[in-house]
Design a binder for these strands. Structure first.
Lengths: 190, 190
DNA sequence: CCTGTGATGACACCTGGTGCCATCACTGTA
DNA sequence: TACAGTGATGGCACCAGGTGTCATCACAGG
């Protein structure tokens, strides 16, 4: 637990997101972020592996929730049902109070190729974790990877809809909707 | 066209791949690569946007082949048939003479997170291009994204099998095989 | 009051990456 | 043959991201 002014990590995230939103990702130096947060450059890199990582602070928790959600699905569930359960399990990470910052971060990331890369890596780790958990449940491999990929697509689509300013529904709701649309589309591919 | 010693770009790629294979990606500086190639650091960054990019030199051509392959598929083809045609269309990029270097690069990339990121970005651009081309063919959107994602999965799986030292078959063959396995798995998801 | 521990500060240093200008090899033209 | 133009390279200064190392500070516990 931190002494001095507490919440160093959160202060860094806030300072970074605000600075990026104001002036763009690469017109903001790490030194400027830490100055705004009342800390030093060295401390920033103790909390985050690199400059990008400050924007993906909550993502790892999400991956864990997702994998746990799949593991906790009833034993007889089909792959898609397990994925739906996982989408529901991540619900707590998407409180209405987080939409504002999520929207800001989403915009910053969309505007910068380096950040899109990092986002894709997180997404890939998420689907890899899903696929692994599905395999542990006994789903053989082409199906496990495929279900994970569809789950990732549902997650991304659901997140985009949830963040939309016109949206009023919860994340779980829009994400499960996206998933069922994808399942329907499955029949029209052949 | 280059003067002086020609093929500066190819020399840089060779020098980089060999150095990375010998000593690992981040124990090799750009200065060392350019020295080995008989050039300077400044010239390296004229040919490649950053240090990673030297390992993904051919990737953009591949994306183009893929998209063109889909566009060139017969008008009545289903999404999956179009994807299969695209996989076939990339065949020329996978000559037997390229397997050796492809295998080396694959290993270097697998060992380094930064490079995995870049690889994922290329992969994402490839599937995005596929999805876009499918939409232009009149496939509506959940299906277009889904088919593109499955195509990407088939591509990745096929590439892994093609590169395998024990493999003797062509890329198109193993990739189409991976695709049909994925289509079969589709039925078992519900 | 003392000592240990964990987080932070301070500083030097390396490397990826860029801007800027000079230089060289070659081409086309007079 | 001479000369100007073009395109690729070299050289150099410079910035910012990222790391290693040690000092320092606040607190806990004895």
């Amino acid at each position: 637990m931190s002494r001095w002014e507490p919440n160093a990590r959160e202060r860094l995230v806030r300072a970074a997101v605000e600075s990026f939103a104001e002036r763009g990702y690469d017109d903001v130096t790490v030194a400027e972020i830490t100055e705004r947060a009342g800390l030093t450059k060295r401390t920033f890199f103790r909390h985050f592996a690199d400059k990008r990582e400050v924007l993906f602070a909550g993502q790892d928790i999400l991956s864990r929730l997702f994998a746990e959600g799949i593991a906790a699905a009833p034993a007889g569930a089909t792959p898609i049902e397990a994925v739906a359960a996982a989408l529901t399990a991540t619900e707590p990470a998407f409180g209405p109070d987080r939409r504002e910052q999520a929207r800001t971060i989403r915009q910053v990331v969309a505007d910068h190729s380096d950040l899109r890369e990092r986002s894709l890596l997180k997404h890939a780790k998420l689907t890899a974790a899903m696929a692994e958990t599905l395999r542990e449940r006994g789903i053989p491999d082409p199906a496990a990877s495929l279900a994970a990929e569809i789950g990732g697509l549902a997650f991304t689509t659901g997140f985009a809809r949830w963040v939309d300013p016109a949206n009023e529904r919860s994340f779980g709701e829009v994400a499960r909707e996206a998933l069922s649309e994808l399942v329907e589309a499955t029949a029209k591919l052949g």
